[in-house]
């Protein structure tokens, strides 16, 4: 199939091993536009996919108690010059289930494209989900990425989510995640984005610590250069006794780029505590000196610091 070949080529381009994704003991979904190219379930996982004219519907259920050792691969992409991909994802983990989901979003080929994802994620009691979403874009700057998610983290469950878009042009990015954490649950959201030229970045991540002893971390690392802009809202609300949250936002601005960071913290219970830190500006002078004192030219030192922050 042409799309599958294109996908293999795209994986090779970004240094991933397509054989690992397509292995018989690994669950995967591969979608091109609104067409499902390949999907595979394994014991413990129920993966249902349905491609419609204007959307791909995906339902991924991890059975209670299942421990899925190998990452589940969700590969989305477009392999034409122009296109749209809308994804409607429902992901559930039953009580005590554990899984890692790697989402590969491959948009290296399109000149102009729109990728939108609406996700509803439910973690049952004591479940654990590690979600790594990595975007690979080309240099056109006309890619629009709109991931929105509503996540419920059940009692004592753990939700660890990483988002990265540091290769190629961002284009336009609009992340909106809302996570509610129940008693003893943990949510950690980390976003890393590097904007260039006229890229536009908007990230809004909200964690509501609704259960006693719930914990949350919203961590954002964004670098922008040239005429790119970023607006980051990291919000955490402590609504229950013993809830602990932290918002950590760091942005590096180069050239004429602009950035705005808005840490939003609130507590509605006297025994909750939420803290925040935000650093925004050019590269730290002392970090720069530390690397220049090892013989790195100023531009190389700046690159090393920025890429280190986004690693």
């Amino acid at each position: 199939m042409t799309e599958l070949r294109a996908l293999r080529d795209a994986f090779a381009m970004i240094g991933e091993d397509p054989a690992a994704v397509l292995a018989a003991d690994t669950a995967h979904l591969i979608a091109h536009g609104h067409q499902v190219i390949s999907s595979q379930s394994i014991p413990g996982i129920r993966l249902e996919t349905h491609g419609e004219e204007d959307c791909i519907k995906v339902r991924l259920d991890i059975e209670p108690g299942a421990n899925i050792e190998k990452p589940i691969h969700l590969c989305f992409g477009l392999f034409e010059r122009f296109g749209t991909q809308n994804v409607d994802l429902v992901l559930t983990l039953g009580a005590g289930a554990r899984a890692t989901v790697w989402s590969h979003c491959l948009f290296t080929l399109p000149q102009a494209a729109r990728h939108s994802m609406t996700a509803r994620v439910e973690l049952g009691p004591d479940a654990e989900l590690r979600s790594n979403e990595t975007h690979y874009h080309g240099l056109s700057g006309l890619i629009e990425v709109i991931p929105h998610a509503i996540v419920r983290v059940g009692p004592r469950a753990r939700y660890i989510a990483d988002f990265a878009l540091v290769q190629g042009r961002v284009g336009t990015l609009d992340i909106d995640y809302a996570v509610a954490v129940e008693e003893g649950g943990v949510a950690e959201l980390t976003s890393k984005v590097y904007g260039h030229l006229s890229d536009r970045i908007r990230i809004r991540e909200t964690v509501s610590l609704d259960g006693a002893g719930a914990r949350g971390l919203v961590k954002t690392r964004v670098a922008v250069e040239d005429d790119a802009s970023a607006e980051i809202v990291g919000a955490t609300h402590g609504n229950a006794p013993g809830a602990r949250g932290h918002v950590d936002c760091m942005e590096i601005v180069r050239g004429r780029a602009t950035a705005r960071a808005v840490p939003e913290v609130s507590v509605s219970h006297p025994e909750a505590k939420v803290t925040h830190e935000a650093a925004i500006g050019s590269v730290d002078a002392r970090q720069l000196e530390t690397l220049m004192a090892r013989g790195l030219a100023p531009d190389d030192a700046v690159d090393r610091i920025v890429l280190g922050m986004l690693r």
Partner: peptide, 29 residues
Amino acid sequence: LPMHERARRGIAIAWQEPVALEGLSIADY
């Protein structure tokens, strides 16, 4: 001479208050 040129010519410093470099491993540094 700029700082990096001094380093390339053989001057090295152990800073009194070393900074953290997030994302760099000790091997990288």
